[in-house]
Design a protein around this nucleic acid. Structure first.
Lengths: 348, 348
DNA sequence: ATAGCCGGGACATTATCCATCCCGTGGCCT
DNA sequence: AGGCCACGGGATGGATAATGTCCCGGCTAT
C-alpha cells in the first residue's frame, strides 16, 4: 500500500512501465491469439514499442507465442490478476471512489483503471467488476431486473457459470427497446439468468406502440403480473448511455431527436432521457420499471464507463435513485472535473 | 510485501533503479555536503550516471544543492527510511536471515542490504541496526561487555543520546588490545556508556605482558573485582575480524603471525584467533572475558559485515557461543555459499 | 589572496531506439 | 489441394537519446 507510493516517489517511471506491460498483457488476453501488428494497431502504439514489451513478456514467460499469434501464459494470467490492485493503487482509485460517492450521494462507487473510450478492454473490466459485485450481492429469492446495452451484455459474459443453488429470477427492467437483439434487455436477462443458473421471465412488448395500445397491453393479466414482478425487484442493474447514442441506436424518429436536442438531453437510462439536471425530458413508450419505482427498490446499480459518458452519468445519477455506480477511471475523473467546474461557477 | 514481488516480475528494472537512487541518497546522507565528482569517485560510478540520478533526486525535492555541495532534504531522509524495508524485500533478506540463523544455529540473524567491502555506508547501516537492537534489548541493571573495533566504534556513534533512566554498566570485554586508541574496547565502552547515559568501568591492562605478570595483575583486588564484573555481564557485544587484519592492526610479532598462518587462523573475536572449524589456535594474552565464560552470558551478540569477513564470521560463529549475529548481505550470502560448498563436499 | 571543489553547461561520440521492410511459415479459405 | 493472408522474427538505416569528458564561473576554506 504505502510502499507503492514510496516507490513512485523514488522512481516515477515505474508507473508508466508497469502500466504499459499491464495494458499489453490485458489486451492480449482479451483477443488472444493476436499478432504483434494487430495489437499495435489496436493500442495505437508504435509497433516497435509493442514489440519491445512483447519481447520482454515472452522472455519472462508471461506470454507465449506460437504460429497463430500470442497468448497469455497461465503465469501471465496470475500476474495480471495481481497487478489489478497495484494499478488501482497507482491511480489512487480508492480515493477517487470515495470522493465521487460522496459528491454524488451514492452508497458506493466502483472505479476500474483506464478509459473505455480509449481501450476496449476497460469495458470488459467494468463488466467484470460489475459481475463480481452482482455475484456477491445476489441472495436466494432475489428478483433481479436488468436493462440492455453493450455493457450489460458484457456483464452477462463475465459472470461465472454457476449451478443455480440460489433461487433467483431475472427479468428485463423494461420491454423490448428496438435495439440490436443481443443488446436488448430480454436477451441480457436471459443470458445473465443462464449464467447464474437462475430462472427468467421475458417481457415482449413492441416498442413503437401508441400510448393507448401500450396501456391496453399493460392491462393484459399475464403482462400485468410480469410488470408487477419487475417492479418488485430487489436489485436493479442498469446501464447508462448518452442521449445521442441511444437515440441513434434505437433509430428514434427525427421528431423525437429534435425534442431531445431542444431539451438538452444528455443521458439515458432504461428508456428515460435526462437533461443535465437529472430531469426527464423524454421517455420511450414502454412498460415495466418506471423511474419512480426505483425508490422502492433495495439496490439500484448503475453501470457505464468512458470519458464520453461522464455527462450522461452525471445526469442519470443526479436523479438520486441509484445506490451503486460502477464505472471506469476516464468517466470518473471527467465527472469530478465537471462537478468542480459547476461548483466553481455556482459560488462565483 | 507480495506486491513488490509482482512488480519485480513485471518490471525487473525497477530494482536496479530504486537501488541506484537509494544508494546515492544514502551515500550523500553519509558525507554531506558532497560534490558530484567526489560522489562518483566514491561509488565508482561514471560521473554522468551519478549526475542523472542527482538531477532526478533534486527535481523530486529529495536532495538539495547549494554551493558547498549536495545534501539530503528532510523529505529525502523520510524516503530513505521508508526505502529500507523495500530494499530488504527486494533482496529477500528476511529469508536470508532465517536460513542463515538456522544453518548457524543462532537465535537470530540480522542482515542489512549491501556489502561493507564495496560501500562504506553499509557499515554504518550495520552499526545502526546493531545500535537499534542493543537499545531494544538493554534493561535496567544490565552489565554490557563490549569489544573494540571499527564496527563497534561506529555502533557507539549510532546510538541515540539518551538520558540514563536505565541503570546500566558498560565494561570492555577484555583488556587493552594494543590497537588504535579510538578502536580499543575501553574507548568503545566509554563511548557507548556516554550515549546510553550509563556508567562504565575501564580495564587498563598492558597487552604485551608475559603470562606470569598477567596472572599477577589479575590477582590485584581491584582488577579482580572488575574482571568478575565483566564475566557477570548479561549482554556481550563483540565484533568479528579476519585473523590477518587483526594481527596486522595489533602489530603482532612475526613469530605469532607465523603461528596463525601455520594453524590456518581465519577469524578473530576478542583476542582469540580461530581456524575455520572454530577451534582456538592462538589467543592474545589479556584478561577479562574468556571464551568459555560466554556460555554463562545470557545474550551474546556478534557483529561484522563485508564479504571478506565471511570466512572469519563462519569460524567465530561455529564456536556456538553466539546468540545473535548482525551482518550485511555481502557477508551473509558469501557465508551461505561457503556453507553450501562444504556441505556439497561433505556428502560427496 | 588563492587553491580547490562546487554545480551547471557544452559538445562530440557512442549506443540505443525506432520505423520499416522482408522472409519463411503456418492456418484458413477457396 | 493449392493459393492467400497474417503471423513472428530478423535485418537495416536513420533518428534520438544517453554518455564520457571537458570547461567555466562562483563559493569556501585555508
Amino acid at each position: 500500500m504505502k510502499q507503492l507510493q514510496v516507490l513512485r516517489k523514488i522512481a516515477p517511471e515505474i508507473g508508466e512501465l508497469v502500466e504499459r506491460r499491464h495494458t499489453v498483457l490485458q489486451n492480449v488476453l482479451f483477443v488472444q491469439p493476436i499478432g504483434r501488428r494487430a495489437l499495435a494497431a489496436k493500442l495505437g502504439w508504435p509497433e516497435r514499442m509493442v514489440r519491445k514489451e512483447i519481447d520482454f513478456l515472452r522472455e519472462s514467460g508471461l506470454l507465449i507465442c506460437d504460429a497463430s499469434g500470442m497468448e497469455v501464459s497461465p503465469a501471465g494470467v496470475v500476474i495480471l490478476e495481481e497487478l489489478k490492485e497495484i494499478i488501482r493503487e497507482f491511480h489512487g482509485l480508492t480515493d477517487l471512489e470515495r470522493e465521487l460517492a460522496q459528491r454524488l450521494g451514492l452508497k458506493r462507487v466502483l472505479v476500474v483503471p483506464g478509459d473505455s473510450d480509449a481501450d476496449e478492454t476497460v469495458k470488459k473490466e467494468i463488466a467484470r467488476a460489475t459481475a463480481e459485485f452482482l455475484h456477491s450481492e445476489l441472495r436466494s429469492g432475489d428478483i433481479l431486473a436488468v436493462t440492455g446495452g453493450t455493457t450489460l451484455a458484457e456483464v452477462a459474459r463475465s459472470l461465472p457459470t454457476a449451478q443455480g443453488e440460489k433461487d433467483i429470477t431475472v427479468v428485463p427492467a423494461r420491454g423490448g427497446l428496438g435495439e440490436n437483439v443481443e443488446l436488448q434487455a430480454n436477451t441480457v436477462a436471459a443470458a445473465i439468468a443462464q449464467r447464474l443458473g437462475a430462472t427468467y421471465r421475458l417481457l415482449h412488448v413492441p416498442d413503437d406502440l401508441g400510448e393507448e395500445a401500450m396501456s391496453t397491453i399493460a392491462m393484459e393479466p399475464k403482462i400485468k403480473e410480469l410488470i408487477d414482478l419487475i417492479r418488485s425487484a430487489r436489485i436493479v442493474l442498469h446501464g447508462i448511455g448518452t442521449a445521442e447514442e441511444m437515440a441513434r441506436r434505437r433509430g428514434l424518429p427525427q421528431e423525437y431527436v429534435e425534442i431531445l436536442a431542444r431539451e438538452h438531453a444528455v443521458g439515458e437510462a432504461f428508456g428515460y432521457y435526462f437533461n443535465r439536471d437529472g430531469r426527464i425530458v423524454f421517455a420511450t413508450s414502454s412498460v415495466g420499471m418506471r423511474l419512480e419505482d426505483l425508490a422502492d427498490v433495495e439496490l439500484v446499480v448503475a453501470v457505464g464507463g468512458g470519458k464520453s459518458k461522464a455527462e450522461a452519468a452525471l445526469a442519470v445519477l443526479s436523479t438520486g435513485h441509484q445506490d451503486i455506480y460502477i464505472t471506469d477511471e476516464g468517466a470518473a475523473r471527467e465527472m469530478l472535473q465537471r462537478l468542480d467546474k459547476r461548483a466553481g461557477r455556482g459560488t462565483r
